[in-house]
């Protein structure tokens, strides 16, 4: 019983185990599962959205942030990985058609 430190009383939890806050799983990050970290090379990225579409979390976001590549190409948006949730599965790394996502070992 000692581990049940501050859990609420039966009186203050919804009956029948209902969960009233949609999507509150986001309060629990899963970034610490990661062994390898995918890093998007914004210069190489073609903004094809494949990584965004296949990410099972979702942990890749389309951000309305313009980006200018080193070769001068203008992008209206950027793809960013949310490391709070990215579990480091590597699907995006493998599926990126231009190999714009590096996969590096996490250093803790």
């Amino acid at each position: 019983m000692s581990f049940e430190k501050k859990l609420p009383s039966w009186k203050s939890i919804p009956i029948g185990g209902a969960i009233l806050k949609p999507g509150n799983f986001a309060e629990r990050p899963t970034g610490d599962w990661r062994v390898f970290r995918p890093i998007i090379n914004q210069d190489k990225c073609l903004r094809c959205l494949i990584c965004w579409a296949i990410c099972p979390e979702p942990a890749i976001y389309i951000i309305d942030k313009p980006y200018r590549t080193s070769s001068g190409r203008e992008w209206k948006f950027t793809l960013e990985i949310d490391y709070n949730y990215c579990k480091g599965c590597g699907l995006c790394v493998e599926e990126c058609p231009v190999k714009a996502i590096d996969f590096v070992e996490e250093v803790k």
Binding site: G23, A26, E27, P29, R34, P58, A59, K87, G90
Partner: peptide, 10 residues
């Protein structure tokens, strides 16, 4: 579907 769920990585 929110992130944070416990499905296996990948």
């Amino acid at each position: 579907l929110s992130p944070g769920h416990g499905l296996c990585a990948g």
